[in-house]
Amino acid sequence: MRHTMKRLITYFVAASFACLGVMQPAQAALIGAGQVVAAADAQQNRAHIAALLERPAVQARLQELGIGKADAQQRVAALTDDEAAALADKIDSLPAGGDGVIGALIFVFLVLLVTDILGFTKVFPFTHPVRR
């Protein structure tokens, strides 16, 4: 009985040492291009930290703007740090290319007609700018 107890304790102690013995060091790894670029550029480093903090906010805003959760998640994951930071700052002020329809105010219509003809804008398909 006593002998068995001693053996058990011995096993237990041996096992814990064995655990220590095979404990893995931190995984060795290659250093990638992205890490070197980020480290070389303090600006990038800041963008990385900002992006980490801001990605959830960007995703939430995309969902508010009518994008489903799964799509919003994938879209945020696809952004670089710089792109995520740009969206976090300016998601509501960045131009959204979409060919929206301009409110048909007659004044606006006349102004744009003139600027189209002068070649400063190209709103109406039927205008041809004056060549200078």
């Binding site: 703007l65 009518g66 879209r75 960045l94 131009p95 290319g97 979409g98 929206g100």
Partner: peptide
């Protein structure tokens, strides 16, 4: 982006 009726350059 539905609410913006367009697409954003970074995306």
């Amino acid at each position: 982006v539905p609410e913006r009726e367009g697409s954003l350059p970074p995306e």
